[in-house]
Design a protein around this nucleic acid. Sequence first.
RNA 1: GGAGCGGUGGCCGAGUGGUUGAUGGCAGCGGUCUUGAAAACCGCCGGGCGAAAGCCUCGUGAGUUCGAAUCUCACCCGCUCCGCCA
Length: 441
Amino acid sequence: MSVGVQRLRDEPDRIRQGAIDKREDPALVDQAIEVDARRRRLQAESDALKAERNAASKQVGDAVRGGAAASGPEVAALKARSTAAGARIAEIDAELATTEQQLEDLLLRIPNPPDPEVPVGGEEANVTVLTWGENASRVVTEADGTTWERRPHWEIGEALDIIDNPRGAKIAGSGFPVYKGAGSRLQRSLISWFLDVHTTEHGFTEVWPPAVVNTASARGTGQIPDKEDQMYIVTRDELYLVPTAEVPVTNLHREEILEADQLPIRYCAYTPCFRREAGAAGKDTRGILRVHQFDKVEMVLFERPEASEAALEWMTGRAEILLQRLGLPYRKLLMSTGEMGFVQRKKYDLEVWAPAVERWLEVSSCSNFGDYQARRMQIRYRPEKGARPELVHTLNGSGLALPRVVAAILEQYQRPDGSVTVPAALRPYLATDRLGPAAGA
RNA sequence: GGAGCGGUGGCCGAGUGGUUGAUGGCAGCGGUCUUGAAAACCGCCGGGCGAAAGCCUCGUGAGUUCGAAUCUCACCCGCUCCGCCA
């Protein structure tokens, strides 16, 4: 129930190649085709027997109403026919059920084939589509020839008393930072500004969803079973803390049939994001680059199939605009088949330059899922009035994730004295043009 | 947490064992009429599998029966009242 049996029959080669390029097992494709054929054979057999049983049952009713004795031999014979068919049906349906389960299991393990434009390979195959802005250097040379060195964001955060990791660790655990004073206000400002730009300039509808979802929703976006290890689970109430707003917002239209004139639907939503980061122990332990709880504004699109390709470019552009207006140099990467996830068809990552740690930091990931997610969630639309429903295409992208944007700001806008200039776009929100001890943090 | 009521097609809403996949209304689509529109009238009008015949689907799952939307059991969800909390 992910790649679609119809497509499996229509273009097995493309799906097989897609699996190879994504470094998954192409043999599953052939197994699935085989199981599908068996499933259809059993289905036909079951249907024929059911037709037989239904006919016999109907005759029982007709005979009794026609005056035959309910306990007479004529009725008894009909009943026997129906019962016999019923017994066979039970056997075949049992086999059918296991076959269907097998097929579903196989389909769930076949990845969404990448878009033809996606470069084949691993990390080395990622294509830098563009770079924007001039990367600042760690060592700054002033006009008078003096030099100073940028300090990493965690030092600045501590020095300005706006990020408190140790106390976060005390009250919740490591990876749960506390933002304080101007740091807290910076969070609010970024969230508000992102949402304001998306809603007032880009036509998104703002959504404020729950920060937990139920099992069905977690399954809908593929969080379970695929990424279950990454999620915090409230077992007592069978709830999952959202790892991204994508999960609740995409599920908004789960199992719905939309009208064509509703599309495209464009949502933006802020939520805190909770991630266990299992298996990432030891990576990026300093600062706020990799944490268990962070804040993010997400864009979620529901599009007509023919529009999704252009929509990915458009949506990625909306995220880029935010970085440009913050004045943060960044690069845009077209991710290779090996780097992109199981369910994506095409994915761009946006990375900002953090000049003190001299690293590119991923702040946005924008993907087109084609109909893959929609199939799993049964999100459909009617191309024309009265036409049969078809699956929509879904897309989503960060616009943007906060911690690394904050880190980049603290490094990029740093001054020799350790204070930080507020990017012009945020000044109306922060009500100051400088973060520093003197700014009343 | 306790008590009660309820979950039927895009929506409202009939239907308590036998041509009911489901009466009726609204919405929608096509047509007649009209300069055009409205009104009126006629027709169409849930979804899935399947090449088709046909099969499945009335919250979900199991059961009773020759046969279930209709009966039984379990579960899920919603609403109302009480309690609790803000």
